[in-house]
Design a protein around this nucleic acid. Sequence first.
DNA 1: AACGCTAATCTAAACGTTTCGATCATGTCA
DNA 2: TGACATGATCGAAACGTTTAGATTAGCGTT
Lengths: 343, 343
Amino acid sequence: MLHVAQVARVSVATVSALINGTATVSPELSQRIEQAIRDIGYKRNAIARSLKMGTTRTIGLTVPHITNPFFTDVVSVIQQAFDRAGYAVMLCCTDEDLNTQDDQIRLLLDRMVDGLIVARVGDGAILKGIVDAANVPVVLLDRVCEGVDTDTVVLDNQRAVFDAITYLIDLGHRRIGYISGSFDISPMHDRMEGYREALKAAGLPVENELVRYGNFHEVDGYNATMQLLSLHDRPSAIFSANNPMVIGTMKAIRDIGLSCPEDISIACFDDFPWSDVFQPQLTTVAQPVQAIGEQAANLLLDRLAGNRDAPPRKLALKGRLMIRNSCRPLGAPLGAIAQSVSA
Amino acid sequence: MLHVAQVARVSVATVSALINGTATVSPELSQRIEQAIRDIGYKRNAIARSLKMGTTRTIGLTVPHITNPFFTDVVSVIQQAFDRAGYAVMLCCTDEDLNTQDDQIRLLLDRMVDGLIVARVGDGAILKGIVDAANVPVVLLDRVCEGVDTDTVVLDNQRAVFDAITYLIDLGHRRIGYISGSFDISPMHDRMEGYREALKAAGLPVENELVRYGNFHEVDGYNATMQLLSLHDRPSAIFSANNPMVIGTMKAIRDIGLSCPEDISIACFDDFPWSDVFQPQLTTVAQPVQAIGEQAANLLLDRLAGNRDAPPRKLALKGRLMIRNSCRPLGAPLGAIAQSVSA
DNA sequence: AACGCTAATCTAAACGTTTCGATCATGTCA
DNA sequence: TGACATGATCGAAACGTTTAGATTAGCGTT
């Protein structure tokens, strides 16, 4: 900029004024400056600008695993939204690990991001400490966090799972296996509640042997399913509370020589692009990813636009049960499956 | 930092020296400074540091669509690699659009990223201009770019498709439909060459009516498949050069009332996590995503470590044909499919 | 002609670091 | 005891912007 100013024989202040339109500059000087900018190939240094202005026009986004289709979609939507608004997005993957997450958030805060969208967080206290210290707006995604009172977008997980389990019960299933993710994050807690409540509402017992835990990975789903299927009185249906784990479930079923839905019915949380393409077409609880991403982006953009003092806004969106053909009516002949498939 | 210096009754230079370990500072001052840092909760301002040092420890990464499983995986690997190295990653999605891509790259360059990984680029000249102007190392991913002479990691696309088509020919297929992505990026060009060469090598004609183009989206695959299947002499096999489009292909087959592999054999480019879980299990060309991501990251990290003057390095990795059960031997009874499945 | 008003431009101080060179005390050696 | 190397600390300039406030020029009023 100094160089431009020299070539155009003006002060840097005038160059700045022209570039930012913060003051009127005469046509002749404008022309000289623009010419100089072109000749030199000058580009404004955003770092210097950020230092002076105290804003980077960059936000931080952390998700557990970008390869989880739910987060893939959410990241995609959020990235688009901020791109439209002229913001850059720094992406971090925490690998479901709390320490990693802390490190990542610190990394982002160090880089002076203007705001933060955090999907999946662990202990509220730690996050609270980090977030309070950094003075930027934060929106929480996918999970509520007791200690941290800030904008939040979550799914009504309990209701969603309640509906799914109730659907299985209505099909005639009585022993329904449930594979949960690690229990220290709220969606897993809420989803489990949905499972329990649905059973209770139908007058069915909640049996511990039918509930397994995993750490969100395919192999965890595989092992959990193997355990469920080796029970002396094995479940006729399994619900997986997490999408990547259901791959393990399907592989376990195949390896054990069973087939779905003939021998066992399967449903899971989170829809994915291939769900209605191959056989069996999985019955899933679809989250409104587009809406979730957009709402999160809007909440943060609103804060960034200056609306700092509004009280925290908590959004709970509704999931949708996508009924396909991976669950069969119990006792009914196999031919009846087709009729049980709707929409 | 000024504040810390005042509280600790030292100069800012000493504080800086201690934090960075650039000079020895006496135990007593060290202690005073560390105490002050803790009391104040001081965090070094990375923006000011970047301004002074001329490095942001941030890299830019652009991909066409993060929802394409290939790019999802690559992004994941790259993010991890740079995270380990203490770099932040700014992610942009170009939506296969050249102007968007230019904008994104400019956005990243404006923010003074230390390096750039660009997956899929259009016209070489434009990118070349942008990249030459910005003085940062760039590595190209997934696509070579004639005008731009820089580090590159690509797949041997021609060979990979050659192998896949040859496999179909060996199964007895003679009319093989081919669905390509837009032809203006090199992988699509090379893959098409693989298709042509394989047919030629087998003494088969290359028929224009069997080749369709789409723009990478599911709907494009759907339309292309519909066209292929309505030919008077329809193909017995279809190869989709792009993964998202094959979803459209499968849906078209279903909608038209055909089934795979009984009525038509399907294979496609890019593996995905669900490929061997559901029926049909798709035969695919798997890219070594882990290796691709790591190589790209390593090339860039090497440049960032100071190795600026080494000549451009061009890596071409090998794809792997994952043979499953979505392609059947032509003329053979259906029961023979199982035997044709290997590994 | 003196005055004030407006518009255009400039000067210089920030923003929060890093780092070069200067300063100063301390101990060592002849 | 003086000369000198060594080690610790500091002052101040620089990185490339923005912006408040000062300055200047031009012009209409009285």
